[in-house]
Simulated scan of single mutants.
Amino acid sequence: MSLFGVIRAPRELVFGSGQRHALGQIAAGLGRRALVVTDERLASDKEFLAMLVHLRDAGLEVEVESGTLPDVPVTSAIIAADHARAFSPDLVIGIGGGSCLDMAKCLALLLAHGKSPQDYYGENLVPGPVLPIIAIPTTAGTGSEVTPVAVLSDSARNLKVGISSPYLIPTAAICDPDLTMSCPRGLTAIAGADALTHAIEAFSAIRRSPDAGIAQQRVFVGKNAASDHFALQAIGLLWEGLETACTNGGDASARANVMMGATYAGLAFGVAGTAAAHAIQYPVGALTQTPHGAGVACLMPYVMAWNAPTIAPELESIAQVIGVGSGADVIPAIADLFGRIGIPPTLRELGLAEDRIDWVTEQSCTIARLIQNNPRPLPAADMRRLVDAAFAGDRTILA
């Protein structure tokens, strides 16, 4: 097989303790009127306020949009874009968790091209460059600071939806693990488990024929040599740091490992894509109103068990990175880690009602871009087996 790789990334990615203090210098090279997107809680945080001072000291005019809501309801993005037009920003800065960064991407798109978010659902429907974006994560999970995706929630569809385009990759990302030091244990666990799921699904995604032009035709091309590198690095960093970051939030080394792991996982799945765990979580999350990271992590061991006959080499590689005996030991090791940091082990414990299993199965099968990215096919009958297993907590029925 010929060596093939794809990575798309910010023009500038700066990682390290204290790097948030470079925001003013970076922003001054991209614009003069900055729309800073965050949420209500962070808007009064002293570190956030200090970053606004850096921007103003660098000569930028600043407007703050602090109305970001969890999972970014589509209507909230439309309202925020309408308000921001009067300011006429030429730069958008997202500071916060994944929802804040996704909101920043969506606003940069709507301010550049107009219309509504619904007009851009899917892949490669953004017509051209958006406003420059600087992404500054304060949690370590989604990897949105480096990905081509903005995820929103659409009440009309009762599901999360995605806008996927390389144009949405931030121009610059500033990843300062100091900003995660105050992140509470529960959020650290959910975000970090989300990142580990991203890395595993990217590393075990389908491998497509590397036809010339595939990277222009698809946002998510499947696993490849470049994404594999970042995915494995992410798995190792998260395995090393996540549990410690949850039990000792003041451990700066663990926090840095988890943040770098989340960013590397974003670089990996930003081109390789995710798969069945994400497809099933979307309807499960809509029904249970549980955090995305908890849902995908709950599902990940069952999806890995289903895919195991197809991903044996990948499991062996993961075993080496995390230091367990063989590929057969990887799935229970991942499940045990998730259990230790508080991820619910079954869909039942996540809050899914048994009488909604059929609906979850049907909805999961409709998310074609994710199901087609899964390395082992999942026709409807097998999808039902997988959802049943995750509900009952029995991976053996997938053998």
Results as ranks from 00 to 15, higher is better:
residue 1 M to Q: 11
residue 4 F to M: 11
residue 8 R to E: 03
residue 23 L to G: 03
residue 29 G to K: 06
residue 31 G to N: 03
residue 33 R to N: 00
residue 38 T to G: 08
residue 41 R to W: 01
residue 56 R to W: 04
residue 68 T to D: 03
residue 73 P to M: 07
residue 77 A to P: 11
residue 80 A to V: 06
residue 81 A to K: 08
residue 82 D to R: 13
residue 84 A to L: 12
residue 86 A to Q: 11
residue 97 G to R: 08
residue 99 S to H: 03
residue 106 C to R: 13
residue 108 A to K: 10
residue 113 H to W: 13
residue 125 L to I: 09
residue 130 V to W: 11
residue 140 A to Y: 05
residue 142 T to A: 10
residue 142 T to V: 02
residue 147 T to M: 05
residue 149 V to E: 00
residue 150 A to Y: 05
residue 152 L to R: 06
residue 153 S to C: 13
residue 154 D to V: 02
residue 157 R to F: 09
residue 159 L to F: 07
residue 159 L to A: 14
residue 165 S to K: 06
residue 166 P to Y: 01
residue 168 L to A: 10
residue 169 I to W: 05
residue 173 A to D: 07
residue 174 I to R: 04
residue 176 D to S: 09
residue 179 L to S: 07
residue 181 M to R: 15
residue 192 G to F: 14
residue 193 A to C: 15
residue 193 A to D: 05
residue 203 F to L: 15
residue 206 I to N: 03
residue 207 R to Q: 14
residue 207 R to V: 12
residue 210 P to A: 02
residue 213 G to S: 10
residue 222 G to C: 07
residue 224 N to H: 07
residue 232 L to D: 02
residue 235 I to T: 07
residue 236 G to I: 14
residue 241 G to Q: 12
residue 242 L to W: 10
residue 242 L to N: 08
residue 247 T to I: 01
residue 247 T to S: 15
residue 249 G to L: 10
residue 252 A to E: 09
residue 252 A to H: 12
residue 255 R to M: 11
residue 260 M to E: 03
residue 272 A to T: 04
residue 278 H to S: 12
residue 279 A to R: 12
residue 282 Y to W: 08
residue 283 P to G: 02
residue 284 V to P: 07
residue 286 A to D: 00
residue 286 A to V: 02
residue 287 L to I: 05
residue 289 Q to P: 11
residue 307 N to R: 14
residue 318 I to P: 05
residue 328 A to L: 08
residue 335 A to Y: 04
residue 336 D to Y: 01
residue 343 I to W: 01
residue 345 P to L: 02
residue 350 L to P: 07
residue 355 D to I: 03
residue 358 D to V: 07
residue 359 W to D: 05
residue 360 V to S: 02
residue 363 Q to A: 14
residue 364 S to E: 05
residue 377 P to L: 02
residue 378 L to Y: 01
residue 386 L to H: 15
residue 388 D to E: 13
residue 389 A to K: 14
residue 391 F to H: 10
residue 395 R to M: 06
